[in-house]
Amino acid sequence: MSEEPKPRRRQARGERRIAQLLQAAANVFCANGYTATSTNAIAREASVSPGTLYQYFPNKEAIAVELGDRLLHQMREAHGQAFTPENFELPLPELLDAVLDPMIEFNCQNPVFLALMHGSEVPGKIAEEHDELHASLLARVGDLLGHYLPDLPAGDRARIADMTFAVFKGGLALVLAAPEGPERDATIAELKTALHRYLDPVIGDANITCPSPVTTTPTP
């Protein structure tokens, strides 16, 4: 009975070590990019020996895949907070706050996401999962447009969704490059202004007048 906690303690130490290595990898990937990063550089950043690193990950690709999996999971959760039926009922300025804030916060807290997902020579598994996430996000934007404009032709909806996402990605790069504090806050405000000015002629009136779903209860 007295020896039962030992495996759990070893497992907890292992999880902490993995988290330490992944954070070190994130720092190095951000600084150098995926291609120029080596396992030795990650080990130095984590203050461990290369041998310790290899106890947990066989190579740089395995580290990147594990880090990418965790980031993509967190990003999907951010999407889940953003694209909800309740948010779709908000006026456009509040809708943009509700949709953009979780996604901007995630990227600001995890700058390695863009460095890893958009880097050259990233592992194929990461690229494939990122493409799936990208397609899912575009579909969510398309759903939002369809909510307000159900008669909008599919081609128009896809084009507007593509443009909306392109504006967001371009603005997000400027947000991440801005120093934290007033300058970053001002850049976020500019990004929201740009998206509002683009989307308001498209869904502004529909956003205001779109009726909420009405439910009826049968009379006895």
Rank of each mutant, 00 (worst) to 15 (best):
T84K: 14
P85S: 00
F88N: 12
L90C: 02
P91E: 01
L92F: 02
P93D: 01
E94K: 14
L95M: 13
L95V: 07
L95E: 03
L95S: 05
L95F: 15
A98N: 02
D101I: 12
I104V: 15
E105A: 15
N107V: 11
N107T: 12
N110L: 03
N110M: 06
P111H: 03
V112N: 00
V112T: 02
F113S: 00
L114H: 10
A115N: 09
H118K: 06
G119E: 00
G119N: 04
E121G: 04
V122M: 01
P123A: 02
K125H: 06
I126L: 05
E128Y: 10
E129T: 10
E129N: 12
D131G: 08
D131K: 14
D131H: 13
D131M: 11
E132R: 15
L133Y: 12
H134D: 06
H134E: 05
L138I: 06
L138W: 00
G142C: 12
G142N: 04
G142P: 05
D143L: 10
L144V: 11
L145W: 11
L145Q: 07
Y148I: 01
P150Q: 05
A154K: 14
A154Y: 10
D156L: 14
D156Y: 13
R157N: 00
A158G: 07
R159I: 09
R159P: 00
I160F: 13
I160T: 12
D162Q: 15
T164Q: 04
A166L: 10
A166I: 08
V167I: 15
V167A: 13
G170Q: 08
G170Y: 14
L176A: 07
A177I: 04
A177Q: 07
A177N: 05
P179W: 08
P179M: 02
P179I: 06
P179Y: 07
E183Q: 15
R184Y: 02
D185H: 14
D185M: 10
K192F: 04
H196G: 09
Y198H: 11
P201Y: 07
G204R: 06
A206W: 13
N207Q: 11
T209A: 12
C210L: 11
P211W: 07
S212L: 09
P213G: 07
T216F: 14
